[in-house]
Design a protein around this nucleic acid. Sequence first.
DNA 1: CTTATCTTGTGAATCAATTCACAAGCCCCG
DNA 2: CGGGGCTTGTGAATTGATTCACAAGATAAG
Lengths: 207, 207
Amino acid sequence: MKRIADSTVRRLSAYLRFLEDFEARGLATISSDELARRGGTTSAQVRKDLSLFGSFGKRGLGYAVPELAGRLRAILGLGRTWQVIIVGTGKIGAALARHRGFQDRGFQIVAAYDRDPAVLGTDLDGVTVRDVSHLEADVRRRPPDIAVLAVPEQAAQAMADRLVKCGVKAILNFAPAQLQVPADVTVKSVNMAMELEGLSFALTNRD
Amino acid sequence: MKRIADSTVRRLSAYLRFLEDFEARGLATISSDELARRGGTTSAQVRKDLSLFGSFGKRGLGYAVPELAGRLRAILGLGRTWQVIIVGTGKIGAALARHRGFQDRGFQIVAAYDRDPAVLGTDLDGVTVRDVSHLEADVRRRPPDIAVLAVPEQAAQAMADRLVKCGVKAILNFAPAQLQVPADVTVKSVNMAMELEGLSFALTNRD
DNA sequence: CTTATCTTGTGAATCAATTCACAAGCCCCG
DNA sequence: CGGGGCTTGTGAATTGATTCACAAGATAAG
C-alpha cells in the first residue's frame, strides 16, 4: 500500500470521532464539507484523505454515517482489542491506567510495571503493579501489542531498549525524550512540555 | 516576522532539550550534525531551522552550547514564568497539577478548578481546587497566560468558550475534541486517543 | 603566510501536502 | 423522463517543507 502520512492518520482518527457523534445524534449521511468544518480543514482535504482508501461516498448525497464509521474503524485497526502494558506508574502512568476510554476503544491494559517497591502490588482498577524486573519474562510469555512508556526522562531510552529487545513493536512514549528505536518499531510521543513551549512561543511571537 | 511552522517550533524545543543535556555534560560546542543525529533529523534541517532566527554558529566550529541554549530559550519565550490555570482536576488534571517539571520550566500553576463538589478544597501540591463557578471572576482579576483544559470530552467546547470569553489566549487541551476558537487564541492539543489509534493503524498496516 | 580541514548559512532543487476546479454520478421534482 | 441542484472523486496546480550542494568563514598546523 502507498505510504500514508502521519497527518492523514490523525485526521482519519478525528473524522471517526465526529462520525460517532453524528451517529449518536441519528444522522444518516454527512458531506465532506460538514466533516471538514468540524475538523477545521477543507472538504477537498477530507475527500482526498478518504480516497486514499477507496470510494465510500455517494455523489450528490455525501457519506453514509454508519458505513463510513465502520470503514474508518477497519482502516485504523479498531475492529479488535489491543493488549497494552504500562511501564512506569508514577502520576501520569497511574492516571492512564485508571483512564476509562482506552478500554472503551479496545485498548486493554493487561499489566503495569514500576521500579519503586513502595507502589508494587498497588491495584490500578484491576491491574496490579508488578516489579519491572518481571517485564521481559511476562512480555515473552504474553506479548503485548503496545507498551505505554511513562518513566522519568533519564530512564526512558534504557527502558525503550529493553522493550525493543523483548519484541515490542509499538510504544506510546510520555517522556520528553526523543527515543531511538529500530525502523520496525513504531513510536508515538505525547510531549506536554513541547506543547507548552509551543504555546509559549505563540504568546511570545504574536504580531 | 515570517510565519514559523509548527513542526519547526517543535524541533527547536527538542534542540533545546539536547543542548541542556550537552551543557550538563560540560560540552562547549556542538555541530548541526550532532544535534541532528540526536533529534532524528538532518544537519541541513537543523541549520535551516536556526537560520530562521539568525546566525548563531561559527563556521568550521559549530555552535556554542550555552549561547545557543540561551538563544533558543529567548526564541521560545522561556525567559520568564507563565501563569497557568488547570480546568478539570480529574485523573489527568490532578496528575498535571502535581507534575514537577512544568514548574521547573517556568510554567507556574496558579489555580485549579473543578465542578465536582467532592474534590473542591483538595490540595494539589500547594494549589487548592476551587469551584469552576469562580473561573470568570478569578481570570478577570488575575489573567493567566495559559489554561490547561482537562475536562471530559462533552464539556470541552463549552469550557473553551468560557475561557475564550474571559480573555484567555492560549489553551492546552487534553480532551479528545477539536476545539473551535477565534484566530487570536492558540490551542495545542495532547490527544492520547489519537496517538494510540496511530499505533493501531501502524500495527494493522505494516507490509 | 599558506594549506588542509571543518562546518556554517543559504540559494536552488526536490519532494510532499494541500488546494483548486471540474467532469461525472446521484437524487428529487415536475 | 429530463433538468436542476448537490456532492463526490481526482488530475493539475499550487503552496510548503525538506534536502542538496557549495561558497565562504573559521581554525589549526607547519
